[in-house]
Write a protein that binds this DNA or RNA. Structure first.
Length: 271
DNA sequence: ATGGTGGTCATACCA
């Protein structure tokens, strides 16, 4: 049995609890990292996760916006969250997952979307996104007391040409502008992170994890972007055994605009 | 150039 980690921007964990439950029943990941829970901590549907065998749930939420949660079958240790840009936003949760075979540090991230206008002079939200990325440079692939490290979540940037439906048409659209894609790739490589989705699926192949609510017939027009990511410390590259984008989730009842991404690792085979 | 759809919390704001 591989060790599996899923990441999913759920866009309200309370509204979408039914599809989260069926996802967990069907896929049974060891760890599920949620973003945009939009749920204060005292209103989080904790019991629903305990009932499904996820006894270790760490939440970092606020009223109305943002919010991240790390939901695990295995114990979570050294729980921390960082306040990026001193905004008080709940966008990061760091913990160590202790599996029988290996301890893995997991950074769960929800990077600011950045608004519509890709000019930091005119648009404070875009300025904030760039500042947030600058602070993300402090998060390296060093696992600390753990054996390995992962960084997962909604990074709100599609770095490669094949991470969007049309590179040319999105060059001036927030999420795919050169300043964002170059900054993200630079901080990823400088931090020692490996883009595990692209280790599993060659860069020539298009991958999307998000389709706008505003586009009708999302499946037929397929104007998606890869905004959700799974990065790992280099030691995890040879252990990566599976990478699944659960595209069908975009068609579920009352869907999120993002779909889950799941990575599997062969920890047992390593010894 | 514009508006298209959703979520939160009750009005605009955010994605």
């Amino acid at each position: 049995m591989p060790f599996t980690v899923a990441t999913w921007n759920i866009n309200s964990v309370r509204l979408r609890l039914p599809i989260v439950q069926s996802f967990l029943q069907r896929w049974q990941p060891d760890v599920l990292c949620l973003q945009e829970t939009k749920c204060p901590n005292d209103a989080f549907p904790m019991a629903a996760f305990h009932d499904l065998g996820y006894g270790h749930v760490e939440i970092h939420g606020q009223k109305g916006y943002h919010g991240v949660a790390t939901i695990s079958k295995h114990p979570l240790e050294e729980i921390e969250s960082r306040d990026f840009c001193a905004m008080g936003d709940t966008r990061h949760l760091d913990s160590i997952v202790r599996t029988p075979d290996r301890a893995v540090r997991i950074h769960n991230f929800y990077v600011p979307a950045g608004g519509d206008e890709p000019d930091p002079e005119k648009n404070p939200k875009f300025r904030h996104k760039l500042d947030f990325l600058d602070e993300m440079r402090a998060i390296s692939a060093d696992p600390g007391k753990a054996d390995s490290a992962l960084l997962v979540g909604d990074l709100n940037i599609a770095p490669l040409e094949t991470d969007v439906w049309s590179h040319k048409q999105l060059l001036r659209v927030v999420s795919h502008t050169p300043v964002e894609t170059e900054t993200l790739e630079d901080l990823r490589t400088a931090g020692g992170w490996s883009d595990l989705m692209r280790v599993a699926i060659p860069p020539e192949e298009k991958i999307f994890t998000w389709w706008s609510y505003r586009a009708r017939e999302w499946d037929i027009s397929d104007r998606g972007r890869r905004l959700d990511h799974i990065w790992g410390s280099p030691d995890l590259e040879p252990l990566l055994s599976d990478l699944t984008v659960v595209r069908e989730a975009r068609g579920w009842e009352k869907p999120s605009d993002h779909v889950p991404v799941i990575a599997g690792f062969a920890f047992n085979d390593a010894g």
